[in-house]
Amino acid sequence: MSIISMSGVHKWFSTTVHALRGIDLEVATGEVVVIIGPSGSGKSTVLRCMNMLERPTTGTVTFDGMTLTDKGVDIDHARTEMGMVFQSFNLFPHLTVGQNVMLAQRKVRGRSKDEARNMAGQQLARVGIPEKIDAYPRQLSGGQQQRVAIARSLAMEPKMMLFDEPTSALDPEMIKEVLDVMLHLVTEGMTMVVVTHEMGFARAAADRVIFMDEGMIVEQGDPDELFDSPRNDRTKDFFDKIL
């Protein structure tokens, strides 16, 4: 059963940039999909079209029985079921770590302060930094900030998580701690779509790897198959450059 599906999705930025050129993509419940490709290939745009941070110019996106591209859809409700983690963390700097994790729980899920704080504690423990609940974001390292951002999304108990280059803004020594948290989520059976340049993570965690170029899905498949014997010339060319 697919939880999210995109069909015939095109995205134009203004009238000059054709960022997505017909994306058809289904993700099954419990599946881990990793999207790779050169910069400017539209990887992040695909992700952002999944939760309507970018509205597709044409095509449809359905998630959990809702057609997100319909005008009248309650997009706020859909987003509570679909966590997103950003490259630049985007923690709220004026709030403590605990308040960051509690805000949407209280405003959207309507949980009491105690419930929300309880859940914040649980999720921060899940990402390995329960002791930071009263710290401010800028007192944390990049890796810790990103783990808080993951906890913030998990506290909404989403059905699916989107990761937009979650380790690209991190210093090398902090990448592993974030990837470990993500691997842990994989073992728990979380449905995930991950845009990343971490080929090690893709190989270890992905059920399916998608290679994108110039706004199209060029090739997809089992990670070992795709990495070891890519069929398409552009995929081969990409691996030659990065591996």
């Binding site: 941070l53 706020d76 987003r79 950003f86 805000l103 949407a104 405003k107 959207v108």
Partner: peptide, 22 residues
């Protein structure tokens, strides 16, 4: 930063709610 609005919205907060709280 624009990312603050996106972070709020992606958690399911409405535009107005993100404006007020974030």
């Amino acid at each position: 930063e624009h990312g603050q609005m996106e972070a709020g919205r992606s958690l399911g907060l409405s535009y107005g709610s993100t404006m007020r709280s974030v």
